[in-house]
Simulated scan of single mutants.
Amino acid sequence: MARFGKRILPPRDGITAARLRAPGGSQTHAARDLPVPATVREWLSDIVIPTTMGREQAFGAEPLAPEYFTGRGELTDQTGRRVRLDDAVIPGGFYVFHKPVPYEDAIPFEIDVVHEDADLLVVDKPPFLASTPNGVFVRECVVTRMRVARGEDDIVAIHRLDRVTGGLLALSRRPETRGAYQTLFQRREIEKTYRALAHLPAGWSPGDALPLGLEDGEERERRSRLRKIDGERPVREIPGTPNARTSIRLLRAFPHGGGWAGEFSLVPHTGRTHQLRVHMSGLGMPLLGDPVYPRDVDPDPYDFSHTLQLLAERLAFDDPLTGERREFATRLTLDASRS
């Protein structure tokens, strides 16, 4: 949510307030041409608010009662004034409120703080814990947990890791310096290295060729065009100009499950969704424990019996405030027996 919402209505229990925009007004937005209701009560009576409702239902199907907004929801207008139901609607105005957030079963893994200073927290995110509020996980994510544990509502993730991926995640603690660090990620000026365990092609044995001509210690590149389809979890590799690039280095091969697996160092040079997982699967070497590639098994998010063997192993960058070289390494390890 934008800083506007945080400024006039602080997070509750580590969860950022939601934002609504009223119909009408002179600025361009989706509801500008809709009629402006006479009162806040009339407006809110017809609004269906997306809300997490557990694993089976991701969106609320019924409007919240208007009384919720001015009670527990603490509806506040863009001037910072608490709203009453009989108030006139501000045409095109912004309003913020606290959504109802259902109970969530705890994800039974802890966050390890690798580094902290006045501006940054670098943590080891465990697999199965989301980086940020996302879908059914609002309370059970790194940002919400860290806000609550530290009593710091300004903590935000500077980048993200897939929920099933473990390893290093950088968090900003102060809005005043956040933009400088976010710019590093936007400009791809952060060196990110991942470690992974992956199946080697069926029937492979030592001495056989591997995709891309991979050999122990040799680095090769995978380039392809990736496309995310709305409503689908897997990302597709499609024909066309490459928009995703990954460096791949085989570190070692080892027997696994009646076949062979490899340990790899992976460096993403672009930041596409699921990029490393898609590239490895597309080479016929899917990551051990991957619930989506090459086949989406639609696992229960509370099934922790199989762990994706992918770690964000290293972050390195020149600090934008001091010029100091910063390098961080994960304390987590891979384990083929957990795949």
Results as ranks from 00 to 15, higher is better:
Glu263Tyr: 08
Lys192Gly: 13
Glu140Asn: 04
Gly282Arg: 10
Asp117Ile: 13
Thr333Trp: 00
Pro10Ala: 11
Glu42Gln: 00
His256Pro: 13
Val101Phe: 01
Val143Met: 05
Val142Phe: 00
Val235Glu: 05
Leu20Glu: 00
Thr51Arg: 11
Ala61Ile: 14
Val297Leu: 09
Arg338Ser: 12
Pro239Val: 07
Arg173Glu: 04
Arg252Lys: 14
Asp296Thr: 02
Asp230Phe: 06
Ala18Arg: 15
Leu321Pro: 12
Pro133Tyr: 03
Pro102Ser: 02
Arg72Val: 15
Ala22Gly: 09
Gly93Val: 07
Asp105Leu: 09
Ala22Asn: 09
Ile107Trp: 05
Ala106Thr: 09
Glu189Phe: 07
Val48Leu: 03
Tyr181Asn: 09
Ala202Asn: 07
Asp318Ile: 05
Arg173Trp: 02
Pro126Phe: 01
His269Arg: 13
Pro100Phe: 09
Tyr181Thr: 14
Asp335Met: 00
Leu120Cys: 01
Gly24Trp: 15
Glu176Asn: 01
Ala170Lys: 08
Asp87Ile: 12
Thr144Asp: 04
Asp335Cys: 00
Met146Asp: 13
Gly231Asn: 10
Val267Met: 06
Asp298Leu: 15
Ile47Cys: 14
Ile190Arg: 12
Lys125Asn: 08
Asn243Arg: 00
Pro91Asp: 15
Thr322Asp: 02
Thr51Ala: 14
Arg55Tyr: 11
Ala316Cys: 07
Val148Cys: 11
Asp46Phe: 06
Glu74Trp: 09
Gly323Tyr: 05
Gln78Leu: 12
Val40Pro: 00
Ser205Trp: 00
Asn243Gly: 05
Arg147Ser: 13
Val83Ile: 10
Arg195Cys: 08
Val142Lys: 04
Val114Ala: 04
Gln57Cys: 10
Ala261Lys: 06
Pro320Arg: 14
Glu327Pro: 08
Arg187Val: 15
Arg236Trp: 11
Arg222Cys: 11
Arg195Ile: 11
Arg227Leu: 14
Met285Tyr: 02
Gly24Arg: 04
Val48Tyr: 08
Glu104Thr: 12
Ile107Val: 15
Val83His: 15
Tyr194Glu: 10
Phe185Asn: 13
Ala18Lys: 14
Arg19Ala: 06
Glu263Gly: 13
Arg245Tyr: 07
Arg227Val: 01
His256Trp: 15
Pro102Asp: 12
Ile8Ser: 07
Pro102Tyr: 05
Asp335Glu: 00
Arg163Phe: 01
Ser247Tyr: 03
Thr246Gln: 11
Ile155Arg: 04
Val156Asn: 02
Glu104Gly: 03
Asp46Pro: 00
Ala244Asn: 06
Glu221Asn: 04
Arg147Asn: 12
Gly54His: 11
Arg7Asp: 10
Leu334Asn: 01
Glu219Phe: 09
Ser265Thr: 11
Glu152Val: 13
Asn134His: 08
Val142Asp: 02
Glu215His: 05
